[in-house]
């Protein structure tokens, strides 16, 4: 084909095609180049929709809201406002506290389930995995809504208990507080915790467990000596997978959290909505993300130190 092009009267066009062919050949010859070429569209999308927006958000956090517009001048007023008003940092702290609660509860509840899945369930394992995964993929909103109707003042639990005569007054503590928030979130993120733990348990070489038994361990000693340490990567991943997204959640607090269950996400959302102070919202977002990231890095560093000991 090249030859024919070159032989044609349109010699210049032929030359161009030759050049193109050269580039193409070079491209095909280097697997590295080909690999990155396949990656480039995705990297571009992630760059454009992830990195650039985060950069703009960061910049915006140093601007100021001026009526309907932004004043694009550098100022740290938003950050000063954050540290100046104790309510923000207190809210961030309680948000992180709640998320830690949720992540801990989720992981503790998920571990036996994952263990059961990895070591006890032999037949129909795929069915169990699907059963665990399906609720996770169904609408987050509907799952939260389900808890709202379950825990509500006149909800399923209260009306159910009253119908069978166990209580005469609806239980107050069920909805619109931190308890309902933790329960709902624990439910919502269950699969995210189970799957990483399950994978890390499944990956454990069974002969390591036999070796522990062979060396004198009973079931309990073996669990703490081998199984748990070897599944720690899964536990940590699960913990982070649950902890990080829940810090920024604003739907669940709004639907089931009530006034006592407000989280930092609600404030950020308000700043971008009714509050109409985007730069302040951006600053809150930046502070929250930085705090979370630092917390995660410090934790991981600490865990690594512990393990090297």
């Amino acid at each position: 084909m090249i030859r024919r092009l070159l032989a044609s009267p349109a010699g210049a066009g032929g030359l161009g095609a030759l050049l193109l062919e050269r580039v193409r050949r070079r491209f095909l010859r280097s697997p590295q180049m080909r690999g990155y070429a396949l990656l480039s569209p995705t990297l571009f999308v992630m760059l454009l929709f992830l990195v650039v927006p985060l950069g703009i958000l960061f910049t915006l956090s140093f601007w100021k809201q001026d009526g309907l517009f932004f004043a694009p001048a550098f100022s740290i007023d938003n950050y000063v406002a954050f540290f100046g008003r104790i309510i923000y940092s207190k809210l961030l702290a309680t948000s992180i506290g709640t998320s830690l609660c949720v992540a801990t509860a989720t992981v503790l509840l998920a571990y036996p389930m994952a263990y059961c899945l990895a070591f006890r369930i032999k037949r129909a394992k795929i069915m169990w995995l699907i059963l665990i995964t399906v609720p996770f993929w169904t609408s987050f909103l509907l799952r939260v809504f389900a808890w709202k109707i379950t825990l509500g003042y006149q909800g399923v639990i209260n009306s159910g208990l009253m119908t069978i005569g166990l209580i005469s007054e609806p239980l107050q503590f069920l909805l619109y507080n931190r308890f309902s928030l933790v329960v709902t979130l624990t439910h919502a993120w269950a699969a995210f915790a189970i799957l990483p733990i399950y994978v890390s348990l499944e990956k454990i070489d069974r002969s390591l467990l036999e070796a522990a038994t062979d060396l004198g361990d009973g079931p309990v000693a073996r669990f703490f000596g081998v199984t748990l340490p070897l599944s720690m990567p899964g536990v940590i991943a699960a913990f982070l997978f649950v902890f990080i997204p829940t810090v920024g959640d604003y739907v669940t607090p709004r639907l089931v959290g009530g006034t006592g269950g407000i989280m930092i996400g609600n404030i950020i959302q308000t700043m971008f909505g009714r509050g109409n102070n985007w730069p302040m919202g951006a600053a809150l977002a930046v502070i929250s993300m930085t705090t979370i990231t630092l917390l995660v890095i410090v934790t991981l560093w600490f865990i690594r130190k512990m393990r090297q000991r």
């Binding site: 927006p53 982070l240 829940t246 810090v247 920024g248 604003y250 996400g265 959302q269 977002a285 979370i292």
Partner: peptide
């Protein structure tokens, strides 16, 4: 590992 709200507002 980024909360949805951050992705949304950014």
């Amino acid at each position: 590992v980024i909360p949805g709200i951050i992705l949304g507002i950014s």
